[in-house]
């Protein structure tokens, strides 16, 4: 009986001592956490895509609370979420412009053809490094899907040899644009009306030889556009999205149908 009492006392005393030590340590090493950080973090999407330039959503929330980043730093957040974050931080909501990725190439297997048999690592960057021009067109999408791998939102897929963006899922974080070795992916405002889906800077006849969906630099679109929104530079049409009114006259006239509605 005495043994049990002694054991209980010893364990009880040790428990009390350790408890006291924990309380003391908790006080001494207390790290102040801004409660706003957790609230901001809840408004962020949580995919840790890195589109904001921070290490992930936690880091982005911390940066916003510390004032190191703007409240609309997250390119993925909706306007609603930004307003919530602004309310938490007590600042005016900045207007966010929703963006999306756009692949400036339509060169599927049907439109262009494979020039040489690339065998090696299934990655666009590796293919570019090998120096082999895989497709007849030197400028187009390689279709090995480096962008698909980079996308955290399952918004990009390679269909018949060329990458296609799913605008519903795309959040405009820009990770795909950063990995594309051909610089084909452009981040554009999601309310853009028309865009040129080709990146070839080769001259018209050469483009015609290698791809059925290549910009020939023929300037028919320039002549059609009443808003003067289209310019042809370096054998490639460019649309000034600010000026474009979305009349779609250029799309009708384009012989290769490279101007697409979004």
């Amino acid at each position: 009986m005495a043994g049990i009492v002694i054991a209980t006392l010893i364990v009880g005393v040790i428990g009390l001592l350790i408890g006291a030590a924990l309380v003391a340590a908790g006080k001494k090493f207390y790290v102040e956490v801004d409660e706003r950080e957790a609230l901001v973090r809840e408004c962020l999407p949580g995919n840790n895509c890195g589109g904001c330039g921070q290490a992930g959503c936690d880091a982005a929330a911390a940066a916003i609370v510390k004032g190191e980043a703007e409240v609309n730093v997250c390119p993925v957040c909706s306007q609603e979420a930004v307003e919530k974050i602004s309310a938490i931080m007590g600042v005016d909501a900045a207007a966010t412009v929703k963006k999306r990725a756009f692949v400036r190439c339509l060169g599927t297997c049907e439109k262009t053809s494979v020039k040489c048999n690339y065998v090696g690592i299934h990655d666009c960057r590796s293919a570019v490094l090998s120096g082999l021009s895989v497709w007849e067109c030197d400028y187009g999408c390689l279709g090995f899907g480096s962008c698909v791998e980079a996308c955290a939102f399952d918004a990009l897929h390679v269909k018949e040899g060329a990458a296609v963006v799913d605008p519903e899922k795309c959040t405009g974080c820009g990770r795909c644009a950063a990995v594309c070795p051909k610089n084909l992916i452009e981040l554009i405002r999601s309310d853009t009306k028309a865009a040129v889906a080709c990146s070839s800077r080769a001259r018209g006849p050469e483009v015609k030889k290698v791809c059925a969906a290549g910009c020939l630099g023929c300037k028919l679109c320039t002549k059609q556009c009443e808003a003067e929104a289209i310019q042809v530079e370096g054998n490639l049409a460019h649309i000034d999205y600010e000026k474009c009114v979305g009349c779609e006259k250029c799309m009708e006239k384009c012989p290769a149908k490279v101007i697409v509605r979004l």
Binding site: G120, I121, R125, S126, L129, S130
Partner: peptide
Amino acid sequence: RPLMQLFKQAKAE
């Protein structure tokens, strides 16, 4: 394994 190609890509990046 395509070791050399992996290394070439890593070095380039």
